[in-house]
Amino acid sequence: MKLTLKIWRQKDAKSKGGFETYTVEASTHMSFLEMLDVLNESLIREKKEPVAFEHDCREGICGACSLVINGQPHGPWAKTTTCQLHMRQYKDGDTIVVEPYRAVAFPVLKDLVVDRSSFERIIQAGGFISVNTGQPQDANSIPIDLDTASKAFDAASCIGCGACVAACPNSSAMLFTSAKVAHLNMLPQGKVEAQQRVLNMVKQMDLEGFGRCSNITACEAECPKGISIENIARMNREYWAASLGSEKIA
């Protein structure tokens, strides 16, 4: 099938970007990224610069791939990353608009590649349990209720791709931040520093320039791992409880 692609091209972070139009011949069995590979291969043959996009595992778990495809982060399939989106979705003659994530906290580095290091700093602010190597007791000495373990797992399955920020009309990072807060704070191991964690991580999230959550739920709708906004509610209550009900400050 023949497709028309409108792709955002931008030389580097400082340059101004714009859309360019390409046509590509694709097969329905390809993944979306394989279709871009085909485009790039043909651009290289013409001695033109290929389109830069991030990708790695191509099985939906590393979180490297991004892209806003026809207005949706990771494209139209629910709970699917761009790398797992297949061209079965499209038909001959379709036009596909491909853009990078848009958020000041995710500046464009080149073409479709954005800098997501703001997420790194949010994790560094408190997204861990302070335990040194070699300290722990036997793993089974901490029984954990099945539902709690499975909820913690669901929150922890975040792949850090940033689709939540890209989808949010406010460019808020609440789903990402809350998923980590919820994962750690609901486990007994993480409770020890739960209050400090939520205070520090929210502080860092604000510093990075993300927008404010207004519960639009676009993040939940577009999250390739289906992470729930229940985590946001949890972070909200833990934050005000820690701010008002403890002596801790961020």
Partner: peptide, 8 residues
């Protein structure tokens, strides 16, 4: 965004 769909 040139195209923006907001699913909720």
């Amino acid at each position: 965004y040139a195209v923006k769909v907001t699913k909720t």
